[in-house]
Amino acid sequence: MSHHDEYRQWPFLTQEEFELACAFFDQKYIRAKLGPKRRMLKIRPRRAATTGASFIEILRLIQLPEDEDDLSRALEKLGGDVSTSECEMEIDSRSEDADEEALRPNSIVPPGPGLPPQYALYSHQPYVTYEIHLHQTYNVPTLWFTLHDLPMGEPSFDLDSVYRYLVPDEFKSRLRAAGITGGISAAPHPITDVPSFFIHPCQTKEAMENFDCPIADYLMVWLGLVGGCVGLWVPREMAIDDAGNQ
């Protein structure tokens, strides 16, 4: 039985279908038994306050600090609000306190007697923010990404930095050959209007047409096709349902 009947026009998504796909993706992250992996990968549903458009934000440390204290501070940063889009708010009102594995921010240092509170100093650990937005022209998801806290002298908005920190060796030649029509492109961010990188969605239709997946798995399948080229892999545990099946 084909799952294409779940969509108005497979493999394209309407705004409503995209929001439903985002909700399923968030649900998979919350329910997955990720263990320590959850500390390195933070997935959050978002909604832009200005437009009401929903999207998914994914935060990932680029490399593991060797020092345990540095690691702890870096993980605290991922638990806080480090989004590139300051005008966002949470899609729903669920509290992460219900998720025992979720990382919680802890940016305030308890003050001593008679002293005002002090804010903890985070160690500068490189991290990447990925965002999944629905492209208003192509009507398919689009993966945006920005680098943060790179070593001094290395610009974050720089294609060479992207290839150095995010693109695995096996993808580099193919991405460079694809050029602006199919590889890594740059444009104003769909919410902040700040220059950002994204994976051009022009080839998404042809790639997704080979699959037959329910809307609950749409973003999982799509990320499996586009995420790896910029260092984003969805944990296998998110593909396992409550019954333990894939």
Rank of each mutant, 00 (worst) to 15 (best):
Q63A: 00
A216Y: 00
S107K: 12
Y130H: 13
T14E: 10
F55G: 12
A48V: 09
G179E: 08
R104S: 05
M220R: 12
A187Y: 03
R8C: 13
Q9T: 02
E16N: 15
D97A: 04
M1N: 11
H4E: 08
G79L: 03
G112E: 15
V226K: 02
L147K: 14
S93A: 10
I62L: 15
P116S: 05
E131W: 06
Y163G: 13
V194M: 01
V140M: 01
E86T: 07
E100C: 06
P141T: 01
S85C: 01
P195A: 05
P201H: 06
V194C: 03
A32D: 08
L13F: 06
I215D: 08
L75C: 00
R38Y: 11
K37I: 04
K37A: 07
A74I: 00
D97K: 12
E170Q: 15
P45D: 08
S72N: 00
E131I: 03
A243W: 13
I58W: 01
V221E: 00
P214I: 04
W144D: 02
R38V: 03
V230M: 10
I215H: 12
E66Y: 03
K42H: 15
R164H: 10
D217P: 10
R94M: 01
S83M: 08
P235R: 08
I91G: 04
D81V: 05
P168D: 03
N139D: 03
D81L: 11
L103C: 10
V109G: 11
P45H: 10
G79W: 07
K33A: 12
C213W: 01
P195H: 08
T142C: 00
V162Q: 13
D70H: 07
Y218P: 04
Y138C: 02
G35E: 03
D242Q: 14
A239S: 13
L115H: 11
V162N: 00
L150T: 02
L75D: 01
P116R: 10
R8T: 02
L121C: 14
A239L: 12
